[in-house]
Structure formats: C-alpha cells, structure tokens
Simulated assay, not measured.
Amino acid sequence: MTEVLHPWSRYVAIGDSFTEGIGDPEPTSPGGHRGWADRVAEVLSQGSDDFAYANLAVRGKLIQQIVDEQIKPALGLHPDLVTISAGGNDVIRPGTDPDEISARFETAIERLGRDNATILLFTGADVGFSPVFRGIRGKVAIYNENLRGIAARHDCIVADLWALTEIQDPRMWAPDRLHLNALGHHTVARMVLAALNVDNTLEPLKPKPMPGSTWRQARVEDLQWAREYLVPWVLRRIRHQSSGDFVTPKRPDAAPYTPPSETHSPS
C-alpha cells in the first residue's frame, strides 16, 4: 500500500447524516453506511501504523445537538484533525435565522480549537438544482458567507460544497434525494482530500453513475419518491421527530481504520 504523507494521526468527524454516510450503504461498515468521511480516513490511514479515526456524526442532528452531544466526546479523543458539517438541518427548517445558526456554529469552532487541531468545515451545497430546496438557496448562501467568515477568523480549512458543481447531478443522489449516494460521497471525499492537500488515487466518477431516466420514468420516480421519502420527512418535522432519535455514533472511539469488504462496495 502506498504511504500517504500528511501530518495527522487522529481524525474525528462530527456532524449529521452527511458525515455519518447516509445514502452510501455498506453492510460491512460500522452502522451499515460508508460515506465520504470513511473514504477520507481510508486514504489518510494508508502506510501509517498509528492512524486512528472516529466518526461521531448522527443523522438528523441540529446544530445545538451537535454542540451539546458531540464536541466534548470529540475533544476527549484528542484529535489533531477534525471535520465538522453542521447547521444544514437547521437551515432547511422554515423560520430559522442563518445568522443565529452561524453564531452557534462559531461556538462549536471555538471549542474544537482548544487543542489546536486542524479543523475543516463545510459550506452548504448549492440547492438551486433541487425542486424541493431551491426556495432556500438564498438562505444557504447567507449561511455560507457566515461560515467563510468563521473559517477566516479561526484559521479553518473550507471544503466548499457550494462550488462542487458535480454534486448537482441528480445521479449523485440516493433515492431519497436528500442524501448523496456512493458516487456523491466518493466525489466529496476527493474534494476533502484536495482541500487537505493530500495526494490520493481516488478517480473521478468512480464508482460510475447510473444511466439517467427517461421523462416518463422520472415522473413515476417522482411520485414514488414523494410517497416513500418526502411525506415521512415532512411528518417528522411536524411531529418534532428526528431520524437520529435513538441512533448512536457508528465509530465512537478513535481506532485504526479497516476498509469494508470490496465485494460489497466500490472504492
């Protein structure tokens, strides 16, 4: 295995479903999902005997829940690299204030910077391509500008999902249209490694995207999607429920990364 040269030995990922890896199912991975963070950890671990990785992210979490539930355990693992993606579940909720969400995010960054770990944060994706979320595109843009200011003040690395136009391709998304699929997570992993300036052998468009649907197929899929995913998602919002209720972190302890079986999931 080729040695990857970088300064980090303990990587902790915190956040919500995006970082947990939802949309990228992998039966042999802890929690049953792989995702971009696992893929990044796999690259960072290559050629290292003492690299350790933890993933504390849990689907559905709001920014204050991530601050309250994940930061203290993350600091307890003594990371020298932390990635955080948070606030997306807040931004998409009607009536929320991107400035207030950003203030909570900055509190998280201040606490995470206690031990001088490298911190990488994510902007939100450009949702203009999504019929469901394009109405909050401006709100996401305001949140992103706040995040860039936070990154500048606290010397964080920015992984710019807004500029990652590749993920605006519908073929990058899981059937629920809320989470990236294996190809999408793979693409984000490449972007994160580039932001960290880590050489790697991850190739674009591998795993390959599925062929696009015909117009008629797409309309049938729209109806199926609304019944299976959109309606339950809306009902959870109304009932103040979360998909992450009673879910625990998939990798709560910093440990050597073991790749999933290649017979189940592409690289």
Rank of each mutant, 00 (worst) to 15 (best):
N146K: 11
E106Q: 13
A108S: 14
N116S: 14
N146R: 15
F129Y: 12
L120D: 02
G149Y: 00
P131G: 13
G113D: 15
E106V: 01
L120I: 02
N144Y: 04
E110W: 05
G124V: 02
G149S: 10
L120Q: 03
R104H: 14
E106Y: 02
S130C: 11
R114T: 09
R111I: 06
D115K: 11
G124E: 15
A108F: 01
E110M: 07
K139A: 04
F133Y: 11
I119Q: 09
V127C: 02
R104Y: 03
N144E: 10
F133H: 12
E106S: 04
G128Q: 08
D126R: 06
I109Y: 07
R114D: 04
R111N: 07
G138R: 12
E106P: 01
V132P: 02
A117F: 14
D126P: 00
F129W: 14
V127Q: 07
Y143H: 05
D115W: 14
E110K: 14
E145I: 01
D115Q: 13
L121E: 08
Y143K: 00
S102W: 00
N116G: 07
R104A: 15
A103K: 15
R134S: 15
N116M: 09
V127I: 08
I109G: 13
E106M: 07
G128P: 00
N146A: 10
R134C: 13
F133E: 11
F133W: 14
V140N: 10
S102V: 02
L112Q: 06
F105K: 04
F122W: 10
R104Q: 15
G138S: 13
T118D: 05
R114V: 03
D126C: 04
L120Y: 01
G135I: 01
S102R: 01
I136C: 05
V140T: 13
G128E: 06
S102N: 10
S130W: 03
S130L: 10
S102T: 10
T107R: 13
I119W: 06
F105P: 05
E106T: 06
F105D: 09
